[in-house]
Design a protein around this nucleic acid. Structure first.
Length: 581
RNA sequence: GCGCUCGUAGCUCAAUGGAUAGAGCAACGGAUUUCUAAUCCGUAGGUUACAGGUUCGAGUCCUGUCGGGCGUGCCA
């Protein structure tokens, strides 16, 4: 909110220098180094070029036009022409009070109603025939965080899990089921057996031999039969899907993720044949080497939408999904959260969708891509046995590690505390944070210990800061309600208090940058920074043992706002806080 | 071959074209009769792969080289 106030003032000042100040307003930003103040404005240098004057002179002229009353102390011009701004403590105090008094949003505004959009966020999308592994965290948790953040901003958001329940993996399972089924295991644990069959057939197909090719062909035949409505294959498919879905639902429950819709590939199946016919009739698609494809300018390969055996493809379903969503939901934006390896597919698919919807208003289609999870060898992650690490066992391990520390720290002293629930939140938080704190576009190297770390820059650190605040309130027997209603202003008397206050008031900037680039790691960095400032404050500024009551009240307010900011910030990431740890 | 992408501290990663490139982990040295030590303070660690270029200013933009990853019509 401080940044917005500054921009308003600069806009007025810059009006007499340029016609369009907008790009120059973007050059106001938080300072990297506190010795340069809280914010800095860098527009004097580029403006100097344009106006043909020395940059420091331009900076001086801007400052002369600038009215910062109530916002900042006198700006300083430094270096080649930086304008360094120090926010007035009176403004900090005023804004803190607004945030404290706002029970739900901490004075973070929604977007203007004209800016509100309807989003469809398409994420997670596991193949139902395979157990979820560590790679699914990326799509699932980045998507989940974006849904939460966009909603908080006041957008209308529809989450849709486009599960893979109709693809070639079922051809593989059908083939395996008929030949390699272990009936006893299937009875006991159908999902485990199906996934074993899947892996087994995958291995057979991947052999670089004629045998491998032959099996590959048979698998595709099973897929084609399923797609053509073969009664036997369809009956088996109907048997498999519900048990797989049950397993997946259980996992989502554990992760704390919910979807508005789970419309998988099979849902669109009846729309595929008519879609292809329509595209053929309109001349958008044509026959090629026995298959049907859409040819795009500038691409060597067409987008295939029907194989020569009649089966449909990924792109066919994607196009049908676009049509369905436009008709059903009229979205403004659709976000697709998938691995960057699908970049070419999405580029082409988006262009094909534009052809398909020519003349209509097409929603903005965005591929929110993310990097691959790599093993320690730098190759896409696999364990020695060829399986990826199951999400389930990873979560189990995270929880048991958290529980071990909890039992040591909190122990028996509090029977009222549900330690296992606390451990669940800490373990899951660690895992989710480890993923979200990466820039989503980067590949990252999977490390068991890093994923489960609970020291340093981890969710645990924020949860710990939160629990420390809660502990103060419990110990001091503080009435939070009356504290929040109290009109007494916060006092800023130490550097630690000021640094904490400053950071608290940058929450909105963090959320905004997370949304702008669809990058939750902007929010994790912020929360770490905030918890870090709180720790410094905690060390230096006694609260319950403050010298006098007004200081105590003031510090309690800072503590409370910190806790609420951390809680809300973590919640936007899909991570829960705990009262004791 | 062509296309996309990445290369930053020992390791894992940050850094909307801005000032002296930052964290965490690991290492080393300190802090607990004090509101939670899952914490804090400090030390050390860098030619941002390399070479040019654009710019007042480049880890960031452009060109080239080297190296890694991915993609490249009937998987998703």
């Amino acid at each position: 909110m401080i940044l917005r106030l500054l921009k308003n003032r600069f806009q007025n000042a810059l009006a007499s220098f340029v016609d369009d100040p907008a790009p120059y307003l973007e050059m106001i930003r938080p300072s990297q180094d506190p010795k340069f103040g809280d914010y800095q404005a860098n527009m004097a240098m580029p403006l100097a070029k344009q106006l043909g004057k020395p940059p420091r002179e331009v900076a001086t002229q801007i400052v002369a036009k600038l009215d910062l009353s109530g916002l900042c102390t006198t700006p300083e011009i430094a270096g080649p022409g930086f304008i360094n701004l120090r926010v007035a403590d009176s403004l900090l105090v005023e804004l803190l009070q607004n945030a404290i008094a706002d029970e739900n949003r901490l004075a973070i505004a929604e977007v203007e109603s004209a800016e509100k959009k309807r989003y469809i966020v398409d994420y997670s999308a596991p193949n139902v025939a395979k157990p979820m592994h560590v790679g699914h965290i990326r799509s699932t948790m980045i998507g989940n965080a974006l849904v939460r953040i966009l909603r908080f901003y006041g957008h209308d958001v529809i989450s849709d899990n486009h599960i893979g329940d109709w693809g070639t993996q079922f051809g593989m399972i059908l083939y395996g089921y008929r030949r390699f089924l272990d009936k006893a295991t299937y009875e006991a644990s159908p999902v485990a057996e199906l996934s074993r069959l899947y892996r087994h057939v995958r291995q057979l197909m991947d052999q670089p031999t004629e045998e491998g090719q032959r099996i590959g062909k048979l698998v595709l035949e099973e897929t084609a039969k399923l797609h053509a409505g073969d009664p036997e294959n369809l009956a088996l498919w109907k048997k498999f899907v519900p048990v797989c879905m049950e397993e997946i639902e259980r996992m989502y429950k554990r992760l704390g993720v919910e979807f508005d819709y789970t419309l998988g590939e099979s849902f669109y199946q009846p729309m595929l044949a008519p879609l292809v016919d329509d595209l053929l009739r309109r001349g958008i698609a044509r026959e090629t080497e026995g298959a049907i494809g859409i040819f795009l300018d500038g691409y060597e390969i067409p987008v295939l939408i029907r194989k020569k055996d009649g089966a449909f493809l990924y792109s066919t379903t994607d196009l049908a999904t676009v049509q369905y969503r436009i008709k059903e939901f009229q979205p403004d934006v659709m976000l697709y959260l998938t691995d960057f390896r699908q970049s070419l597919h999405f580029e082409q698919f988006f262009k094909a969708a534009a052809l398909m919807e020519a003349g209509q208003k097409l929603p903005e289609l965005v591929h929110v891509k993310f990097g691959t999870v790599l093993g320690e060898d730098g190759k896409p992650f696999k364990t020695r046995s060829g399986d990826t690490v199951g999400l389930e066992s990873l979560l189990d391990e995270a929880e048991s590690r958290a529980l071990a520390v909890l039992e040591k720290n909190v122990g028996e002293e509090s029977e009222s505390t549900d330690l296992s629930e606390t451990a669940r939140r800490i373990g899951l938080g660690a895992l989710v944070y480890a993923d979200l704190s990466q820039n989503r576009e980067s590949d990252y190297v999977f490390s068991f210990d890093k994923m489960l770390a609970m020291n340093g820059n981890t969710a645990t650190y924020m949860q710990y800061a939160y629990a420390r605040v809660r502990s103060i309130f419990t110990k001091g027997n503080i009435d939070i309600g009356s504290l929040r209603r109290s009109p007494e202003p916060v006092q800023i008397s130490t550097p630690q208090e000021r640094a904490l206050a400053m950071e608290l008031l940058k929450f909105d900037e963090a959320i905004e940058s997370a949304v702008r680039d669809y990058r939750p790691n902007q929010l994790t960095s912020y929360l770490y920074e905030l918890a870090n400032r709180y720790s410094a404050f905690f060390e230096h500024c006694p609260v319950l043992k403050a010298d006098d009551e007004s200081v105590q009240q003031s510090r309690l307010k800072l503590c409370d706002l910190t806790a609420r900011t951390i809680q809300l910030g973590l919640r936007l990431l899909g991570i829960e806080t705990v009262e004791r740890m």
